[in-house]
Write a protein that binds this DNA or RNA. Structure first.
Lengths: 371, 371
DNA sequence: TGGATTAGTTCTATCACGAAAGTAAATGCA
DNA sequence: TGCATTTACTTTCGTGATAGAACTAATCCA
């Protein structure tokens, strides 16, 4: 295990590297002498490397930045839904190397272990750790409850670790996504922000004081039923105009399909809206307004002006940005800091990268120098 | 200055005392040996005292609890509004000893300093520090902007410290209130909660990871215009059914006065509602529904199930509790943890105690043992 | 070419911490 | 009653993290 300062150093270099020792003194609140001392064992074991001197034209000795060694193996991140696994292979900074999606044989835990083991075996490279994320509540590697898989108290991390012989970290999908944004994504360097995902479902997470808020609520999938539009459609629980009803891809395609009297998928909805189809545009504008209101509410109530949007459905942002911005402007106090909006990539990779990110965090925290 | 551990010990005893060394080991994550060492200088200087042994009937040596010495002086907390000062004298745990309210001569900073100096002089006792809270943004004792006083970049802490010769802490009123709830109030021991105040205005603050969220937003008075009712009245900025329009005492009394065609004050509104007056009850129910929605939104979006209500207007809670609870039930996911609602006392003392609390925090953090 | 400036290292004193062993004061059982 | 047991706290001491001070290194600049 690392000391607190060693851990802070490894984390800072991983997130902000390449970075010089002198820049790290102010970031970590340590003396230059301590940085020399702390960096040494990392350089000896090869986890960190010194890059060439950087001469920036200013007076004084050039800096010799530290960085994470590029060849320290790979990490696997796997997001499990009810019937599918999305897997990515990443480097130590959670950058994508390889990825694929395949169906689960069944939702039975040991069957899922077998599917995941096979998936991991299909990646090439020196794998240092596995992260798994799923919708549900997770405590210390045990899946307490996962509604889409119908799991209760499944010690999944231990099961997969035994099957693969690798370090396994299991985490709630939204916590993992928020951790990935905080360390490697749009939220890097921000002390706090909120994360909103739209797609088949609605996801929500909060970071404050440089930490992801982990209450039992995260696993319960809150945020999905926040009321956003007074006249919107009903969701399956009878809420009018809630986030589920306004923003899930299923609800949006149902509205467009109903208006056009034929089945329209989400991609076609985006194409129709971009092409100016009136029915699709009306739905997109209503959804955009709801999303803008959601963003503004989250920023106002978390007091964090930064918001990260992610999920399969964020193609909506491209076709409804004016409506989104308009709703934000309406619901956001003009005296408040303007909302900083970060848009992640669509698709499943963001989710699986989240899983890889928690595996990387876990690997960093448990590093040792052979002591 | 104290070391981090010394500070944590003083804080833990202040908040949770009387508390034994052995109970502190788990709370602070330190060894018993360290607690002996850390407590010694506090006992020597008299800030902490040892109470008599507590024999609880269980096996083993009885505990010898530590507590804050009861005679370590008093603190003054003053909340300034646009034209009034509310002052309290408290003990070191922010418990009320004395209080009064008086008008400000003018909003001019030096005039306010003179008024506050006179007010402080009217308290009896050994005053160890002064806390001042006001609506606006404050940075390190400098009031950057206070709309009700029309102050810009006023170094108020330094001015009052010079005039009184005492340690002065100046803080935003909602941050101060949240700090008071966190250390001495309803939020004691909770890692996170939200604070909603209703009265002449609407206030909002958030605590997460055991810290008050301090962004520039707090000073700007957000939360006031959150949309809460689709069909409510308009606020002065044209938002229909926002928190201002639904919950401020001015808006509530205006609605009741309009319905009854005579001027009705807030206290009479409460009396009328308690007596079953239909017009007043309708307004109270609408306000209660809005407040319940506000509470549920805050809990959902901050992911903190605990909520503290405070402010002059919380008499509304007594007369509209069913409507509030109904709205919470509607907007809160049944799978989420139930919302824990804490109601503070009405009146200005909660605000002024907040100011005293930040003065106490500042005094604890800067204690020394004569080193 | 040498002074100024900034980056980083080495040496060393300090001090916070916990492990281990010891003391204190209760309960509980014979 | 007395002794074992349990829990609370203290004392002693070694370990290790830290920063200050003095140093070296590498650049810019006059």
């Amino acid at each position: 295990m690392l000391t607190e300062s060693e851990n802070a150093l490894a984390e800072a270099v991983l997130i902000h590297g390449p970075i010089s020792r002198s820049a790290l003194t102010s970031r970590l609140g340590l003396s230059a002498a301590s940085l020399t001392r702390l960096a040494k064992p990392f350089l000896d074991t090869g986890l960190l490397v010194e890059l060439d001197d950087v001469v920036d034209g200013s007076v004084g000795r050039p800096t010799r930045p530290l960085d994470i060694a590029p060849d320290r193996g790979f990490f696997v991140g796997i997001k499990i839904t009810g019937d599918t696994l999305h897997a990515v292979l990443t480097d130590v900074r959670a950058a994508l190397v390889d990825s694929f999606t395949r169906p689960l044989t069944s939702a039975d835990p040991s069957s899922v272990v077998a599917d995941l083991r096979a998936a991991i075996g299909d990646f090439d490279g020196d794998i240092r750790g596995i992260g798994v994320s799923l919708g549900g509540s997770v405590d210390d590697g045990v899946v307490e409850f996962a509604p889409f898989l119908d799991w209760h108290d499944v010690p999944f991390a231990a099961m997969l670790a035994e099957a693969t012989g690798l370090r396994v970290t299991v985490e709630n999908d939204l916590v993992a996504l928020a951790e990935a944004e905080r360390w490697f994504g749009m939220g890097r360097g921000l002390p706090g922000f909120s994360v909103i995902t739209i797609g088949e479902g609605i996801g929500y997470a909060v970071v404050a004081h440089n930490e992801v808020v982990r209450t039992r609520e995260v696993g319960a999938g809150l945020g999905g039923h926040i009321p956003l539009a007074a006249n919107g459609p009903l969701c399956d629980r009878g809420h009018r105009g809630c986030a589920q009803a306004m923003l899930t891809s299923g609800s949006i395609t149902a509205q467009v399909s109903g208006a056009l009297r034929r089945t329209v998928g989400y991609d076609e909805f985006l194409t129709l809206t971009a092409g100016g189809d009136p029915a699709a545009t009306a739905v997109a504008d209503a959804a955009g307004e709801a999303l803008g209101r959601f963003i503004a509410l989250a920023a106002n109530l978390t007091m964090q002006p930064a918001t990260v949007l992610a999920g399969d459905g964020i193609g909506l942002f491209t076709v409804a940005e004016p409506a989104i911005r308009r709703a934000i402007a309406t619901d956001r106090d003009p005296l408040a800091d303007p909302i900083e909006l970060y848009i992640d990539e669509p698709g499943f990779t963001a989710w699986a990268r989240g899983a890889a990110a928690v595996a990387i965090q876990s690997a960093i925290a448990t590093l040792s120098f052979g002591r």
